[in-house]
Amino acid sequence: MKDRLLLLGYAIAVVAATSVHNPWWLAGGLLVVAALAGRQAPTIGWRALRAVLFFNLVISIGYAAGALFGQAVSLDYLILVNTRVYLLIFLTFSLASKIDILRALSFSRNLSYLVTLVLSQIIPFRRLFEDLRLAAESRRLRRLRLRERYLQSAAAAVHLFDRAEHDAREIALAMRSRGFFQPEATDNAPGD
């Protein structure tokens, strides 16, 4: 329940932070969120800063450069948008560090099964992907041509798809063997 409330609270906070256009209010919100994050606040704050720095700098500088071309540029806007973006990303990172995503999604049985499966599959896929990269590097004797690199990328993707297809069938069989599916569904079950 706690996790669902967190998710709900987060949603309300996001809508609020995008509906208020007074930078003072937004800065106040930031203080509140930082206080709620407690000891994690400096870590989250630093990660959040790094996450938005590039995009916001590009946008802010681009916007400020409009002044050179005689456009009306306002400092208020720069303060407003940067505070807002930082508040939102801080909120999201705080949520990600606090929430148990499986519990938060427990309102839907299938969605939580689905997300559990996805999370359990990401690590093996990442490991496999890393091995594909290292194997290609291990067999590389010189700088490869663009064509060769495309062939390698494509072969890696094909291998990942093969693994995905195989794993999907295995998991379906395992779920069936544990009685997950209703009896009538077994008629069109996949063979191997």
């Binding site: 496999l128 091995d131 594909l132 290292l134 194997a135 290609a136 291990s138 067999r139 590389r140 004797l141 010189r142 700088r143 062939l151 390698q152 072969a155 890696a156 291998h159």
Partner: peptide, 26 residues
């Protein structure tokens, strides 16, 4: 260093545990 890289890659080779990871040619 291209020369050392080539020599090392040629002289020290690794067979990965999962051979699939090494195969990428048609």
């Amino acid at each position: 260093e291209a020369a050392f890289h080539q020599r090392f890659r040629r002289e020290v080779v690794l067979l990965f545990q999962n051979p699939d990871t090494m195969l990428f040619n048609p």
